[in-house]
Each structure stands twice: as structure tokens, then as C-alpha cells.
Design a binder for these strands. Structure first.
Lengths: 192, 192
DNA sequence: CAGTTAACCAAGCAAGCGCTAGGGCGGCTA
DNA sequence: TAGCCGCCCTAGCGCTTGCTTGGTTAACTG
């Protein structure tokens, strides 16, 4: 019957589920709503996913993997100076946050709805991503580019960036790059 | 039958509801769970609140009013220098965030579950609070204490602070005051 | 002591929920 | 041409949901 495969069909269904999860929230999204959005009947849904939670896990997995890929590429392409790397990471973060917006909003808001096994698997992906950030921040601190406690700086920066999903309007006049640059301006020390 | 009063009993029930909403999320919290926590039967709940959404609105109203009160008092007691006011607001924000933690977490996570009328009423309270912040940030910008765009700086600072509810452990070694001070260190410009 | 009221309970309704069982169908492969 | 498999459907089971109804009880008030 139902398997944990990764067919292209399943990828597409996952993308559509993310959209609905953002609009309605995970709990409020019924399997019948999901099926309707996908153009199938609710029973058919369980051919692709073993249960509703697995759809949630699939959405979050997609988003997190994408974030990792984008961040790695950004660091590879970036200049090696601490400031360039800080810019690169901030830009990459906002880039993935808005290109895979649905998946990331779901990851940020519905994380606790995951069951324990899914949480354990996905937390490793998230840790890998956060380790990238920690490295960049450590370098910036060593270079005297920013000031403060390494743990708190990470938390504050991640907070400032992730919070953007609550207020940023992609159709507005500011680009994600401008946002990233403004954040770096706010936190780096430039004798004044 | 049921009225929109503000009896002390209702206040207490609201506090207990906040606790459950944080633990389980609004949607997952059933009226039967709420009633059990309150030591009554589910039907009796509707003597105090006209429906489930009204409980949510009551929780968020409590939290926001508390934030406003604490922020006002902090600014009155504070020195008038831009830096002192920035510190005072950051400390006040974290103080209310952790003393009325349940209510604020609910406000941050379950806002979209409010119906339109409740949202319209509560958004005024929130705007009043954010106006206080905007004033303090404008002063800090004018004084050259921080750098950047006034709107973006507000959003980043609010994000960094509100995000703390996701990682801060009140039982840990850092006090909310230390957190506030560290954030100010991160963003103010001190010739380096 | 009659009248009022706030607070609660027992019982249950209608709707919606996640999920299952069993089968149909068209496109592959042998 | 036979057998298989991926994908989908119909029908519905068992349960939970928010909320209602009609009534009880104890405390207050004139």
C-alpha cells in the first residue's frame, strides 16, 4: 500500500501540503482539504504517506535540506573574509526563507507537531545548518567585527532573521539582499 | 447565561487556559481538557466564555496589557538618555516575556486563530506597545547610538527579543537582564 | 423567608475527524 | 496475452469535536 518513497509525485504533493499548512496551520488542515488541493480523494492520500504526520515531516525535511544546500553553496562562492562570510550567510538564510517560504514557515511553527522519531531525524539536519552559522559568527567575533557572547549572538541573529517571515512582504520594495545587508550594518562595529 | 464579564473567576480560568494553550497549542486543546484543568465540566466553561475563541482572546489581551503596563513604568523610571531608555525597553520586554510567558507565547503563536473582531481590537493594543518601541529606537538612531533603517531596526530587534521564548531557559544561568544587556551590546556602535 | 443570581452538572447532538478496506483501471514488462 | 504495479476511487467505521439544553445548588439581597 503506502510506502516512504520519494517519487516525484510525492514531492509535488508535499509542496502543495506546505502551502495549506501555512494557510491554515497543521491541525486545522484536514486530510480532506489536502486531498482536494491535490486533486484526489482523501483515501488516495494514504497511498503516498502512511499518515498525516508523515506529510508534515516531509514538508519540513524539504525545507531544511534546501537551506543546507543554499548555505553551503553561498559559503563556497563567498570571499573568505569574516565580513563577506557574514553577509553571505545572512543573504543565503533570507534567500531560502523566501524561496521555500512555505516549508520554512511550517518548520518554524509546526515543529512540535512532529512525532518523536521524525523530530530526532530532522533535528540532525537543523543542527548541521546551525553549525554553519556558528562557525561564521565565531570568525566574526574573533575578527572583532561584532561584539558579545557567542551563544547569545547566534540566538539573536537567528531570531532577527527568522522573525522576518512574520512581517516581510516579498512584493514590497525591499529585496531580501537589502534586508541581509541592513542586519549586518546593525550588528557590526564600525568605529563611530 | 454567558457574558463577556471580567470576574476574578474568569481571570483565573484565563490564566489556566494560557498554560494549556502553550503546552498543547490552541487547536489541540479541547474544551474538555480546559474544563478538566479548571476543575469543572466542559459545559460549565461556556458560562464564562461564549466560545472557545473568546478564551484565546482573553489570554492574549491579558498578556498584551501587561506588556504595555510594564513598558510604560520602565520608561518612567528610566534615565532620559537614549542608551538608558534602550536598555530599559529591552529589559522590560524580556521581563514581561518571562513573567507572563504563557500569555505571550500564545499571543505570538496563536494570533492567527483569533476571529476578525478580536483581532481588530487586540491589534490596537499591540500597536500602542510597538509605538513605544519605535520612539525609543528613533531616539537611539538620532543620537547615533545605532545605525540603520528605522523600520528594519525595529523589526530586527523585536525579532531577536521575541525569538528568545524559543530557546531561553529561565532556570539556566543567564538572567533576562543579562540577555537585554547583551542585545544592546550587540547593536550599539562603540568605536572599535 | 421569597427572589435573584452566579456557578456548576448530566446528557447528548450534529458535524467533522483520521484512517481503512476492498476494488477498478491503465500502462508497463514477460 | 497474462500478470503486475502505481495510482486512484467509493464507502464508511469509530471516535472526538465544540457547543447546547434544561436543570440543580449555594450564596446573597431586600
Amino acid at each position: 500500500m503506502n510506502v516512504v518513497n520519494d517519487s516525484p509525485r510525492r514531492k509535488e504533493l508535499t509542496r502543495q501540503a506546505a502551502q495549506l499548512f501555512v494557510q491554515e496551520g497543521y491541525d486545522r488542515t484536514t486530510v480532506r482539504m489536502l486531498a482536494k488541493e491535490m486533486g484526489i480523494k482523501s483515501g488516495s492520500l494514504f497511498h503516498h504517506f502512511s499518515d498525516k504526520q508523515e506529510i508534515l515531516a516531509a514538508v519540513i525535511e524539504e525545507g531544511t535540506k534546501s537551506a543546507l544546500t543554499i548555505a553551503h553553496r553561498a559559503l563556497e562562492l563567498s570571499d573568505s573574509s569574516p565580513e563577506a562570510r557574514l553577509h553571505a550567510m545572512a543573504r543565503a538564510h533570507l534567500e531560502t526563507l523566501f524561496t521555500d517560504r512555505n516549508a520554512h514557515v511550517v518548520a518554524l511553527y509546526e515543529w512540535r507537531r512532529l512525532d518523536q522519531p521524525a523530530k530526532e531525524y530532522l533535528v540532525h539536519l537543523r543542527d548541521a545548518y546551525e553549525a554553519l552559522w556558528q562557525g561564521v559568527i565565531d570568525d566574526a567575533l574573533s575578527a572583532g567585527l561584532i561584539k558579545g557572547d557567542r551563544f547569545l549572538v547566534s540566538c539573536f541573529v537567528m531570531g532577527a532573521l527568522n522573525w522576518t517571515v512574520r512581517w516581510y512582504n516579498p512584493a514590497g520594495e525591499r529585496t531580501p539582499e537589502e534586508l541581509a545587508d541592513e542586519l549586518v550594518i546593525l550588528i557590526i562595529q564600525r568605529g563611530g
